[in-house]
Design a protein around this nucleic acid. Structure first.
Lengths: 216, 216
DNA sequence: GCAAAAGTGTTGTGTCTACACCCATGT
DNA sequence: ACATGGGTGTAGACACAACACTTTTGC
């Protein structure tokens, strides 16, 4: 049981890593993980483990990522790992134990085991779902302006996103709704931005695949 | 380790099931499965198991489906199962042991454990991938006419598909290529159909998600 | 007034569906 | 000839991206 926990921090997509104390891979960074307790669901396990040891209670969304089974993945013994992807909204800053820290996903150190590949799989899953679901809710704070949301998408997707078009896509799909309130403009002036929120706080597919859909 | 093996047979999407001899769920139908051998990959395991016991050597595609971890899924003892999805091209008709048979996915008997839900997850995965990848290659024989391919898509997707539009979608994406040969028209006459084949025989994403893509 | 920041209007392009029409064969 | 099955042409509906333009604020 491994957890890829992602959050946008300082305009960068980061993941939670833990520095190993023992061999194999002593002192290397690794994903947080646990052995599954008896009679426990994978989803329960990730939430229990993260809440207890890492004090991240704020997982806005979690889903299963996959199971890694390469025989050589652990040099000590044959071991499978099922990884979950967890998302923490921007702005939350949980207190972490000394051996645990956030690391930018696009400048990872060399990780223990096959954890590097697992983190990248998590990022790819997030990127794909940003474009056809409402997962954005799990990266964003409760309310936000469109430029703020745009910055979160830029950090997660790794390329420019136009606030204009992002707004239109998410409104057309009924993913966002305006709160009616505004954020005051800063020292530099500028028009006050409207505040939005996500309509739903659980995963919904908002853009079912376009091709070969059932006839009307 | 469980395997959801799907094939279009008699214009119907069917899955391979095995009738249990022992408790729990004696005499109930269940997915073929095996305990993972040491130092074995999940993908190797499904292929080894199916080749040895069920004589299905013709898996054109296999991928991981997910891991089921509900504590109550097996009444006897706590047990996880990782399921794979395997696809067999139409036309292949492997010889099966007496306790094994194909069953239409939309008229399944009541299955052992949570296997019913797992089969449906496999079907959903197939349906989704038919619309944005070239997975069709794993359902179709080496060459085929467009009406034949259309019938395979209809069976897998569960709704009408127009051969006209199917052709255009798959040609635009460079998934199909004409062989230059034709199939003779039947007794009833009619224009001879062109024979096509898939360009690739491994999974490719041919229609990356349309929204929020990187600027040119 | 002017710069800065946010938001709107408009146009163009690509992809898909629907449907009318045309083509090649057997009887 | 004509029924039958297969293939093509064309037009409409959307969704998205790009970019020019307008609005609202601070100084």
């Amino acid at each position: 049981m491994l957890a890829v926990v992602l959050q946008v921090r300082a305009s960068t997509l980061q993941t939670l890593l833990w520095q190993r104390a023992r061999e194999p891979f002593a002192a290397a960074w690794a994903l947080p993980g646990a052995v599954l307790a008896p009679a426990e669901t994978l989803d329960e396990s990730i939430r229990r483990h993260l809440a207890a040891k890492v004090d991240v209670r704020e997982l806005a969304h979690a889903e299963q990522l996959g199971t890694w089974s390469e025989p050589g993945r652990n040099p000590s013994r044959w071991e499978l790992a099922t990884a979950s992807l967890g998302l923490v909204p921007a702005g939350v800053d949980p207190e972490l134990p000394d051996d645990t820290a956030w690391h930018p996903v696009d400048r990872l150190p060399s990780l223990a085991f096959d954890h590097g590949a697992i983190v990248l799989a998590g990022r790819e899953r997030l990127r794909a779902k940003l474009s056809y679901t409402n997962v954005g809710f799990a990266l964003a704070p409760p309310t936000f302006t469109l430029p703020e949301l745009r910055d979160l998408y830029v950090a997660a997707l790794g390329h420019e996103v136009s606030a204009t078009n992002l707004k239109r896509v998410l409104l057309r799909r009924d993913v966002l709704e305006p709160t009616g309130r505004h954020r005051d403009s800063g020292r530099a002036g500028g028009r006050p931005a409207e505040l939005y929120r996500f309509r739903a706080t659980s995963l919904e597919v908002t853009d079912p695949f376009a091709a070969l859909r059932p006839p009307t």
